[in-house]
Design a protein around this nucleic acid. Structure first.
Lengths: 150, 150
DNA sequence: TATTGTTATACTCTATAACTATA
DNA sequence: TATAGTTATAGAGTATAACAATA
C-alpha cells in the first residue's frame, strides 16, 4: 500500500532534521519559535485580544498570558486596556519588536539560502517546488478543523 | 541574487508549519522530539555512555542526565555501570522503549501518509524527491562542523 | 451566569556553575 | 589534574485548575 518507494520513514527523519536545523538557526536571533510567532502575527494583523491570540496561536490562555508577559519584559510587545470592554486587554507589537522580527527574518533567510546553495541544481529545484505543498495541505487541514469546532 | 522566484521567506513559513504539524503529531505518541530521539539512537546504535549521548544529540551533559532520568522513570531506558570505567554509566533502551518507539513511528507514518494523500500527484512526487535533500545537506554540514571541532 | 484574564501549580526541556567520584 | 556524571539553579514553554473582575 506504500505510495512512495522509500516509505514515509525517510521523510520523517528528513523533517526532524530540518526541524532541528531551523530551530537552531532561529535561536540565533534570540527568539524561539513561540516567542517570535506571536509578534509576527501582531505585526501582520495589528493589536489583538489575548484570548484571540491564544486561539490563533493554538495555545492555552494562561500560556499566552505568560508569553505576552515575557514579550513585554523584553520590550517586544505592549498591553493596553480595551476601551470597549473592561475585562479585555489589547496586545500590540512595539517598534523594537518589529525591528527584531526583521533582523530574525533576515538571519533565517540567510541560513536557508546557504542551505540551498549546498544543494545540487535539481535538489534545489525540487525543494522550491515541494516545500510549500505540505504547508498548503496542513493549512487547509487546520482551517477545516477550525470550521468543525465553530 | 535570489535564486528562487518566491524568495526564501515562503520556504521558511512552509518549514515552520511543517514543524508545528509534526510536533503535534509526535505528541500523540506521548513523547516529545527530545524524549524520543535518544531512545531511537540507543535502539539503533546500542548502549552508550552518557557523555557520548549528550554530544551525539547536541545537548549539554546535565540535560542528558535529566533526560535519561525521565526516560528511566518512564521505563524506556536503563542505566548500568560501565565495568571498564567506574566513573561512567551505560544507557540502554528497554524493551518497553522499543515498543513505544515502534508505536510512535507508526503513528507518525500514518500522519505523514495522510498528509500526502491530500496532495496532488505532482506535489506528492516533488515532496518525496525534495524532502531528503535538505536533510542530506544538514547532515553533511553537521559532520563537517564536528570534524572542525575535533 | 458567562467571559476575560491572571495566579497557582506542575512538568518538560534547556543551559551554566558547582560539586563528587574516579582515572 | 582531567574526565564522567550529578546536583543546584534558572528560565522558556507548555498544561489544567482555581480565582478575580467585568459583562
Amino acid at each position: 500500500m506504500d505510495t512512495s518507494p522509500e516509505g514515509p520513514d525517510d521523510l520523517i527523519v528528513a523533517v526532524e532534521q530540518m526541524i532541528r536545523y531551523v530551530r537552531q538557526s532561529a535561536r540565533t536571533g534570540g527568539l524561539s519559535t513561540a516567542a517570535s510567532s506571536t509578534p509576527a502575527r501582531l505585526s501582520r494583523e495589528g493589536p489583538q485580544r489575548l484570548t484571540e491570540l491564544a486561539r490563533a496561536e493554538g495555545v492555552s490562555q494562561p500560556n499566552m498570558t505568560q508569553l505576552v508577559t515575557r514579550l513585554e519584559r523584553a520590550g517586544l510587545a505592549r498591553r493596553t486596556a480595551d476601551a470597549s470592554d473592561g475585562r479585555g486587554v489589547l496586545v500590540a507589537v512595539t517598534s523594537t519588536g518589529v525591528e527584531v522580527l526583521d533582523r530574525r527574518r533576515a538571519e533565517r533567510a540567510r541560513a536557508l539560502r546557504q542551505l540551498m546553495e549546498d544543494m545540487t541544481g535539481p535538489e534545489r529545484q525540487a525543494t522550491t517546488t515541494a516545500l510549500p505543498a505540505p504547508a498548503r495541505v496542513i493549512h487547509h487541514r487546520q482551517d477545516t478543523s477550525e470550521e468543525d469546532r465553530a
